[in-house]
Simulated scan of single mutants.
Amino acid sequence: MKILVVMDVSTKHKQWLEQAAGTNDIVYCAGDGSNAGTDLEEAEVIIGNIDPALIQKAQNLQWLQLNSAGANEYCAPGVLPAGITLTNATGAYGLALSEHMLAQTLAMMKKLYLYYENQKQCCWHDEGPVTSLYGATVVVVGFGNIGKNFGRRAKAMGAHVIGLRRRHGAVPPEADEMGDMEHFDDYLAQADIVASCLPDTPETQHLYNKERFAAMKQGAYFINVGRGSNVVQDDLRAAVTSGHLAGAALDVTDPEPLPADDPLWQTPGIYITPHISGGYHLQATHDYIVRIAADNLARYLKGECLENIVDLMTGYKA
């Protein structure tokens, strides 16, 4: 059996994958699979985010393991042939993204962005009162692995954490309350901080619009590490510019890269990072991704049920 790996891996990572592969043939071709040649055609297993347009060439493919948590582009009709199992890297990104979210939150609440701008101007100026996570209500929209990791950290700092998912469920240790999207606006009205960790699906497209920002509490902060398509960006700009929202931190935009002439760049109170909270920026994330793939490979070769199977109808982990 041929296993094609189309993601960056270190020597250590190769050892993990080869131990799981046993005597099976494993081939490494970093990138999007465009240089894989006949290995792509022969592969029964592909590990990594191959270019979706190339999947039809993988005539022997039975299982695709992504190195991302997001799977939307692979769930579109016609991308995956019938019978192919799709799994993702849910569980790998929680540490990196939640720490990034916490850093963004505290930087806004403590006005560190303002003081950094003052420093560049050699301006010794007191920017006035700040706010705290202690006692704040944090609504985490999308309470999967990433949301739970952020909820755990916010709760540890004294925040009241409300997790929102599609369906109401039991309250996990990372939250004080759980809610569902049916009462979305009611929860937004309670939040001092709204932290969004949603994927790109038809249901989440432009979820945050003028009405949703208006439903948020005066002076609330908005954080988005999910997908830029979740947000109507002109409406977010208006909510921040008017002072209704105290600030917004975005690691994702629509489109990406964000064009240099987009007014979002120059909007006071909006802070942008170029979709870098995840990826391989934190070594632990890269290690988690490969561990998930290697563990699933071992399961696949034993005929066991795989972890992180994606529901092609929703784009979420099933």
Rank of each mutant, 00 (worst) to 15 (best):
D39F: 12
M1A: 06
A69Y: 03
G91S: 04
K110F: 04
G91K: 01
I270Q: 09
G142V: 05
I146Y: 07
D251L: 08
H100Q: 12
L306S: 08
A246I: 12
E256N: 03
A215S: 10
E174V: 04
L80I: 01
I3G: 05
K14W: 03
G303S: 05
I270A: 07
E182M: 08
A156Q: 11
F222V: 11
S242D: 11
G151Y: 08
A82Y: 03
H160R: 13
A195T: 12
I223P: 03
L306G: 06
I47H: 00
A82L: 02
D25Q: 09
I223Q: 04
L164I: 13
E304Y: 07
L106R: 08
F222Q: 10
I46C: 08
G48E: 07
I50F: 05
R165P: 02
I47Y: 01
R167F: 06
T273M: 07
Y300N: 02
D185E: 15
Y116R: 15
M181P: 06
L54G: 01
R165D: 06
H13F: 09
L106F: 00
E44V: 12
V5R: 02
L264C: 10
D32M: 06
D295Q: 15
G33F: 01
S10Q: 08
D295S: 11
R299Y: 07
Q56Y: 01
Y134F: 13
V6F: 02
Q190Y: 04
S277C: 15
A293E: 07
V139C: 00
W63H: 11
H100R: 07
G247T: 09
A154H: 07
P202Q: 13
V231Y: 05
N49D: 15
I276R: 10
A175H: 00
G315V: 12
E182Q: 14
V27D: 03
A159R: 02
D234Y: 08
P274N: 06
A154Q: 03
A175K: 08
A107V: 06
L282Q: 15
G226H: 06
R165A: 13
V232E: 15
K210H: 14
L102S: 01
R166D: 04
K111R: 14
